[in-house]
C-alpha cells in the first residue's frame, strides 16, 4: 500500500500564529460585543428608571389632585363618617338594650291582689331579686307559679325560686324573698316593637 506524504509548505509556526490571530480577533469581537451589549442593557435599564420615575410623578400628581378634591368634601365626609359610627353604635345598642319597662309591666299585670312587691333589684344579667308581702301562703304559691306559666301570662321568666319566707304576726302578713331568671333576651324590645307601625314599611323596603 502506497504511503501518502503530505508536504507542508507553510511553516507550522506561521500556521499557529495565523490561528492564534483568528482566535484573538474573535475574542476581541466577542469581548467588545459583550461590552456593547452590557452598555446597551444598562442604558435601557436607566431609561426604564426614568420612565418609571416620570410615571410615578404622574400618579403622585393625580393623588394630590384627589386629596385636594377630598379636602373640598371634608364636611360631607365628617358627617358621613359620623353617621357610619353612630349607625353601628345604635344598631348594637338597640340589639342589646334591656327594656325594664317590660319587666315592670309584667310585674304590674302578674301581681295578684294580696301580693305586693316591696323591693326589686334587676341587673342586665337577667337575674331579678324580689321582696314582697303576701296575706297568705296560697297567694304566694299561686303568684310564683303563675310567673312562669305562659298560660297565665307568665312568659317573661324561666324560673322563679323562693329564697325565704317569714310570717309577721303583728301585721298578719308573710314577707318573702324570691329570685327570678328572665327569659333570654326577654327584656329586649325587638325591632318590631321598636319600629311599631314602621316595621311593615321597613320590610317592604327590604324586599
Amino acid at each position: 500500500m502506497a504511503e501518502e506524504h503530505r508536504i507542508e509548505l507553510i511553516p507550522r509556526e506561521i500556521e499557529e500564529a495565523r490561528k492564534r490571530a483568528v482566535l484573538v480577533r474573535s475574542l476581541r469581537v466577542l469581548g467588545l460585543g459583550l461590552l456593547t451589549l452590557t452598555v446597551m442593557v444598562t442604558a435601557a435599564l436607566f431609561s426604564v428608571v426614568q420612565a418609571q420615575k416620570s410615571s410615578l410623578r404622574n400618579i403622585q400628581q393625580q393623588v394630590a389632585a384627589k386629596k385636594a378634591a377630598l379636602a373640598d368634601l371634608a364636611d360631607t365626609e365628617i358627617k358621613v363618617a359620623g353617621l357610619t359610627d353612630k349607625t353601628k353604635a345604635l344598631i348594637y345598642i338597640f340589639d342589646n338594650r334591656n327594656y325594664y319597662s317590660l319587666l315592670l309591666e309584667a310585674l304590674s299585670k302578674g301581681t295578684p291582689a294580696g301580693v305586693s312587691i316591696t323591693d326589686l333589684t334587676a341587673a342586665s344579667t337577667g337575674e331579678i331579686s324580689l321582696t314582697g308581702e303576701v296575706l297568705d301562703y296560697t297567694s304566694l304559691a299561686n303568684f310564683l307559679r303563675d310567673m312562669v306559666d305562659p298560660e297565665k301570662g307568665g312568659s317573661l321568666f324561666t324560673e322563679v325560686g323562693l329564697t325565704s319566707v317569714s310570717f309577721n304576726p303583728s301585721t298578719g302578713t308573710a314577707q318573702f324573698t324570691a329570685e327570678a331568671e328572665v327569659v333570654k333576651n326577654g327584656l329586649r324590645g325587638g325591632w318590631e316593637s321598636l319600629l311599631e307601625e314602621g316595621w311593615e314599611s321597613f320590610l317592604e323596603y327590604l324586599e
Binding site: 476581541r28 469581548g31 442593557v41 435599564l45 436607566f46 426604564v48 428608571v49
Partner: peptide
C-alpha cells in the same frame, strides 16, 4: 488577550454597578 479580558471585566463591572442598581431602582 488584554482587550478581551478588559472588555469582560468592564462588562461585569457595568452589570454589577449600573444594570444591577438600575434594576433595583426599577
Amino acid at each position: 488577550y488584554g482587550l478581551f479580558v478588559s472588555s469582560i471585566f468592564l462588562s461585569l463591572v457595568l452589570l454589577w454597578v449600573g444594570a444591577r442598581s438600575a434594576w433595583m431602582q426599577i
